[in-house]
Design a protein around this nucleic acid. Structure first.
Lengths: 233, 233
DNA sequence: GTAGAACTATGTTCTAAAACACAAATATAA
DNA sequence: TTATATTTGTGTTTTAGAACATAGTTCTAC
């Protein structure tokens, strides 16, 4: 009983965007169909070619959405932070997933059946527009990303990724350390380069006093320089 | 009077997807707000940084959506064929255009104010879902494109573009000539390579008897080979 | 029809980044 | 703990593709 009440409280506060657009009846339906699932670090959330069934909302943790390309080389397509929605695109396109998702770190995810969401938004213009807006923003980002990843050089791409990570996950209390610890390989897959190049370019940035590194902790020293490198490519 | 009737007929047959989802009242509103505009070959339809105002529907012709990237190097993001909708993403994202659009050849475009479309879809679940589905499909394509353009080699990228053009615009009566005549530069911008490389690789394909070229006419001789080259990158 | 511009073609040079090779350091498990 | 695997770091080699140079060709406009 207490557990259920807690869950209800969780949903209303954790799904702010969607919750506030729903009627009482819809909220009740959502309450009865939403599931909360925990994922361990590096655990798979969904796989390429699977059938999409649920809208996912990341309550806690960090998630990567990625694709395996030519020769199994993996490319991180986007990263998710709390509270963001993911996993719905393929369902709306009536396709299997063309990407996979896995947990960068321990995660709490809320799953809501897509059938329910579709039913809601058919009668709820605000909710429909919410999804239209999310998709439109993501499509704009993807278009920009095509150009950045293909035209910028290694330094520009890595600089861009570092800034992107900072803006996505923020900084620690020291106001400089990026609040996510990625393997060099993930950093490479995010920036479309080999692991060696990510390591080497990171070292160069350290020598140029743009960042400092301590294992996987990356501290941004000169954000202005970093932004400039990202800008000029 | 006759002109108006013609226009009405045009709309109902030319906007099949949207038209059939509207009520009589909505159709009337659409009729009074839609404009038909003609663009000459190479004419600009909209520019980067402009404010999006209209949903555009291509009735006739061929359109490229492109972005200028590092050092003004242009990248074709997607191409539009009749009857497809475009120009709406930025409005929904509440952003200025991040791309530009221009006519590959003489075009007829129907413009419908986005305010009207938004008003329609707030009360029309089918229409909302129609846009959600279009955006979802385009986002999936964009995600795939990031991987293809960054990981495939020049031959694979060009082969992919040729197949893409064939599937988009079809073949001429001979059942082999791709039904669009692009400058080598456009082919390069579509495939993320320099014009020289597009020319060179096209020549190689000719030598390997995969295609033949006659000016801008490209005839596909061995589609299987082309697909294989595209697949393996 | 001619002049100039734009496009196509091909050869050559140069360079960014991948591929490879190997240490060293760190994490994980037995 | 030691052993094993994984990750990080750095130097070297190789290569795909960009950049450059130049010439022939085909549009386009006057």
């Amino acid at each position: 009983m207490l557990g259920k009440n807690k869950k209800v409280a969780d949903l209303s506060s954790s799904l702010p965007d969607i919750w506030k657009m729903l009627t009482d009846v819809e909220r009740d339906q959502l309450r009865h169909n939403a599931r909360i699932i925990h994922f361990k670090k590096n655990e798979l959330i969904y796989l390429e070619d699977e059938t999409p069934k649920d809208l996912m909302c990341l309550f806690k943790g960090k998630v990567k959405i990625y694709k395996s390309g030519v020769g199994g080389r993996s490319q991180i397509i986007r990263i998710i932070r709390p509270v963001q929605y993911f996993g719905y695109r393929a369902y709306f396109a009536r396709e299997p997933y063309v990407t996979a998702a896995s947990a960068f770190e321990a995660c709490t995810v809320c799953l809501i059946p897509m059938e329910l969401i579709e039913q809601f938004l058919r009668n709820n213009g605000d909710l429909a527009l919410f999804f239209i807006q999310m998709l439109s923003i993501d499509l704009g980002i993807a278009d920009q990303r095509v150009v950045n990843l293909t035209q910028k050089h290694v330094r520009g791409r890595l600089a861009e990724s570092l800034i992107f990570l900072k803006e996505s996950y923020g900084l620690e209390e020291d106001g400089a350390t990026i609040n996510i610890y990625l393997a060099r390989e993930d950093l490479a897959n995010l920036s479309n380069m080999t692991t060696s190049n990510a390591i080497r370019t990171l070292s160069n940035f350290v020598n140029e006093r743009i960042i400092t590194i301590d294992g996987r902790k990356i501290k941004i020293i000169d954000e202005e320089r970093l932004r400039k490198i990202s800008r000029i490519g």
